[in-house]
């Protein structure tokens, strides 16, 4: 078992980049954040963390045999192919308005994200 700290946060720079991307992408695709913004916060932190570690925002809601290889393959880099083709985000970051879990927000503040992820 590796001893890497599982809940280390991303750098502020990557978090801000992914936060900004998430807002822009939601608005551009007419999708909404989860009614529970805690879910949104955790996913954005995960994307930013992968951006720090792998150079690409690999989806944090999948298990990979080899994260470096997956990041290079790009299929699951956010926005992933299923999201771009069919608006399918199993991470629940970008939800279509008909989704039961969709809220009415397309914005989330940096402090809002860290208020959630500081708990983990």
């Amino acid at each position: 078992m590796n001893t890497q700290d599982k809940t280390t946060q991303a750098t502020d720079k990557s978090l801000e980049a992914m936060r900004h991307f998430s807002e822009q992408y939601a608005k551009r695709t007419d999708t909404y954040f989860c009614v529970d913004l805690g879910v949104t916060a955790v996913v954005i932190e995960g994307l930013a963390k992968h951006k720090d570690e792998l150079g690409a925002p690999l989806c944090p809601c999948r298990h990979y045999e080899d994260k470096q290889a997956e990041a290079a393959a790009a299929y699951w880099n956010c926005p992933c192919v299923p999201m771009r083709e069919r608006k399918e985000c199993h991470c629940m970051l970008f939800l279509t308005p008909d989704n039961d879990f969709a809220g009415d927000k397309q914005e989330i503040a940096f402090e809002e994200i860290r208020a959630t992820t500081n708990q983990y």
């Binding site: 989860c34 879910v39 916060a41 955790v42 995960g46 944090p60 809601c61 991470c91 629940m92 983990y120």
Partner: peptide, 12 residues
């Protein structure tokens, strides 16, 4: 329950 730390739906 197979989960990962920065997976939003896992927290849910």
């Amino acid at each position: 329950d197979f989960w990962a730390p920065w997976c939003g739906p896992c927290r849910m």
